[in-house]
């Protein structure tokens, strides 16, 4: 049984980002990029299934520029068997387009399970898994915090408000991973070196014949307003006066 794990290259979670001065987007120049942490969880889950003998092949796929090869190498170091890069020009693609591209990859690869992060930490969309499942006509188990494969189905415990909800999905299926599913392993140095020799296929986006138009435009990106510095008050009266007249909260 084959598992497909889509992974996205995003700005590293330890890095503070800032909006470009003209508000046209986030300035990514020179920033450290990494695999989306939710995708790492999906990767870890896939590799654990393989180590448990329930999965025979793990294929990682990323969509973007050549730079995305680094997150695919990371996926290979986790334990993916091979990787596919769908090579696109510079522009970041919307989830709706990503789901079309992933559909084309699923048609080629014919996995029984697509395991993916529930959202990317850069745009926080949380859409791709759902749209992919719809395009494929497969069942979906989103926000997975437990996952087991048995008898041709995936048992997925989903994080819902105040608890979990466990569903059984017939395979093939799409499962999106939440934070509590697992804690990804530390990559081992020998595995990182071995990953450099594993197969990584590059497919130009044009070769998939996917429509990339969406009609969606980004109108602006802005930072949250800066917090005003605090002031030291002299007395209770002063505090009350400021709350009443400056802050106007009482």
């Amino acid at each position: 049984m084959k598992v497909l794990v889509p992974v996205k290259r995003v700005v590293d979670y330890n890095v503070r980002v800032r909006a470009r001065s003209d508000g046209s987007g986030v300035d990514l120049a020179n920033l450290k990029m990494s695999m989306n942490p939710f995708d790492e969880i999906a990767m870890e889950a896939a590799v654990r299934l393989k180590e448990a003998g329930q999965v025979s092949e793990v294929v990682a796929v990323s969509i973007g520029t050549d730079a995305c090869q680094d997150v695919l190498r990371t996926a290979l170091a986790f334990g993916a068997d091979r990787a596919v890069l769908v090579q696109t020009p510079e522009a970041a693609l919307e989830p709706v387009v990503i789901s079309r591209i992933l559909k084309a990859i699923v048609d080629e690869e014919a996995p029984r399970l697509v395991l993916m992060g529930k959202q990317a930490i850069d745009d926080d969309c949380n859409q791709t898994a759902q749209m992919l499942a719809a395009r494929l006509g497969w069942g979906q188990g989103t926000f997975a915090c437990r996952l087991a494969l048995a008898d041709g189905e995936a048992r997925v415990s989903r994080e819902v408000d105040g608890g979990t909800r466990t569903v059984a999905l017939p395979l093939p299926a799409v499962v999106s991973t939440d934070l509590r599913l697992n804690e990804p392993r530390y990559l081992k140095l020998p595995n990182i070196m071995k990953a450099k020799k594993k197969p990584l296929d590059i497919k130009p986006l044009e070769s998939l014949g996917v429509n990339t138009s969406t009609g969606i435009r980004c109108l602006g990106v802005s930072e949250p307003p800066a917090r005003k510095p605090g002031v030291r008050v002299e007395s209770v009266e002063d505090l009350l006066h400021r709350l009443k007249h400056d802050a106007q909260v009482i």
Partner: peptide
């Protein structure tokens, strides 16, 4: 490993 600052440029 990997801990410490993440200087951009």
């Amino acid at each position: 490993g990997g801990d410490g600052p993440n200087y951009p440029a």
